[in-house]
Design a protein around this nucleic acid. Structure first.
Lengths: 337, 337
DNA sequence: CTGAAAGCGCTTACAG
DNA sequence: CTGAAAGCGCTTACAG
């Protein structure tokens, strides 16, 4: 039987009201009393029952994250790094972190409804946004706070962290051109993905400025997995004449592309350049190490949490938007020696 | 304002008692009434408030998983695959899944206390067990149900999934010998890890049966990350004469070892063999693809959940132990052509 | 500065 | 078969 506030009160001959207030740091409690209460509670191993507190306060002190259904596997380095950031920041602030992923049995929409309807979470973090995103709409309708990685279209205001890759892609393309790569291909994800459109847009813009033509046949969609990247790259490499540089929407896709290029017997870094996005730790250890645009995923996740909690606390000024500039890491996969 | 059980009762001119019972499928409710209630509740978008239910039932309907502090990063493919399995199985069964990881600010023990003391979880999943494991002790003391991946020493009974790699390692070593590898090295993890001891034990046993000597200098510990594997492998490869095959405690470590071998200019698969453990999806796409012992992490996680829920339901017979036999996947990293 | 009391939304003996 | 009532462990106006 866990220790309750009543036990603590009894021991001190106080009312539960006072104990509760002392523990919560109200200033209308004698500081002598407060000290006593805190000490005794600690001694007795009192830990507030969360369910009771939630019920009474009508707050869950919990933030949720639902793996986007588009994610074939949660196991992508991207998500783990991101989730680690969310979890750490939330834990540190005394919040709980609820995670779920859609399955064949339970779909994404149902999960949102469960959590929102059941008052299980005070807010949500949403990633992998689509240009039109029903999740954003739903949460706005339900009046549930959330923060997102990237933004969908529309003028709704909500806190988000956005990547601005324009300059980084320009740098990347200039590096590629300097190293003799001229026939650029792109393996993206589903086209409705904000990340797909943005990254492709930046590539096109940079290509324009550098007078590079991008063959439309060299723009292709995969599913953000290494297997998808592998298959897409195989297709690209079968085209004649074939591209000499493949930019991938993320590192995971690039891992598969590396594999395909090796299989074709191409010398990566001289005959073919391959580039990822995210700067995952794994990208340092591929053969050859992967050129990538590095974004601080862990920190981005922490920032999202902070933004969301700020919103919950009601300190919402206008739209809270954080811009992240990716950093170009040039490695062996694009380096003609 | 969300719909409560009271709203549903009012609408139907019933008491909340009856509504509650109808929804829970008690058999002392007229089946006519029950149908009505269920239909109306659904129509009105009623979703039970979890906090209230938890408080009343004194159950959280939540299972927790705390990332072991020994994990440098949650971002390891191993954990993601595992967590995906836990999450899917729990979500499917209507349970919530709480995740946390220790940080510099909040230590592992504190997290356990928070969850157990605060009644936040009904049970826990524990991984990466040590030979002596305080978590197991603590949970037994607190009388909190849990299930583990691998077992610590001692005779306590609790449900667990265990890998039995004896045969698979024998097969692996025979394959290595057949391919001309004779100087075996092992990059493990912290020595107190059950996985470290078991895997090394199986390797030693198989080596004995095949009359291979293992140089003690070739047994070395890293930290289960690719960076750790990279550094450890560099050290191993500097020894003269150097090992010609490196078995790693997991795939992640092996990724780093591959990198180190490439850097040294060794031809992997002919001059040096490298082997992982886990069979992560990433292992298919390394250069060369990685020989590994494949275990069905996702399924193992699902099984653990089922075992744990069975325990919660009180169907605990004797010790519930599942044995997993790894499958040897021979790939280019150990294949002399 | 402290306490008695109401109530968050459920579940569950108990009575009828 | 149905309902009135107690209570899970807290928080928080309100009174003193």
């Amino acid at each position: 039987m866990p220790v309750t506030i009543r036990d603590v009160a009894k021991r001190l001959h106080l009312s539960i009201t006072t104990v509760s207030r002392a523990l919560d740091g109200y200033d209308d409690v004698a500081s002598e009393t407060q000290k006593e209460v805190i000490r005794t509670a600690h001694e007795m191993g009192y830990i507030p029952n969360r369910a009771a507190r939630q019920l009474r306060r009508r707050k869950a002190e919990t933030i949720g994250f639902i793996m986007p259904a588009s994610a074939k596997r949660i196991a992508e380095p991207f998500f783990m790094e991101f989730i680690a950031g969310l979890g750490d920041e939330l834990t540190m602030r005394g919040y709980d972190f609820l995670v779920a992923n859609a399955t064949t049995h339970v779909d994404e929409r149902e999960l949102y409804q469960r959590w929102v309807g059941g008052n299980k979470v005070d807010g949500l973090i949403v990633t992998r946004l689509n240009v039109q995103d029903w999740r954003v709409q739903y949460l706005i309708e339900q009046n549930v706070p959330f923060a997102t990685l990237e933004r969908s279209n529309g003028r709704a205001i909500y806190p988000c962290v956005q990547v601005d890759g324009e300059h980084a892609y320009f740098e990347l393309l200039r590096h590629l051109v300097d190293n003799g790569y001229h026939h650029i291909a792109f393996i993206g994800g589903p086209v409705e993905l904000v990340n797909h459109q943005n990254r492709l847009g930046w590539i096109r813009k940079a290509a324009g400025e550098l007078d590079l033509l991008i063959d439309p046949a060299f723009i292709i969609s995969a599913d953000l997995t290494s297997m998808g990247g592998y298959q897409a790259a195989k297709e690209l490499l079968d085209i004649t004449p074939r591209p000499d540089a493949i930019l991938c929407i993320d590192d995971e896709t690039a891992f598969g592309a590396l594999h395909a290029a090796h299989e074709k017997g191409l010398s990566i870094g001289s005959e073919i350049g391959i580039v990822g996005f995210d700067g995952t730790l794994e990208s340092q250890h591929t053969e050859p190490p992967l050129t990538t645009l590095d974004i601080p995923l862990y920190n981005m996740a922490c920032r999202l949490v902070r933004m969301l909690l700020k919103t919950l606390a009601g300190h919402t000024q206008e739209a809270d938007v954080d811009k992240i500039i990716p950093e170009l890491h040039i490695r062996g996969s694009t380096h003609r020696s």
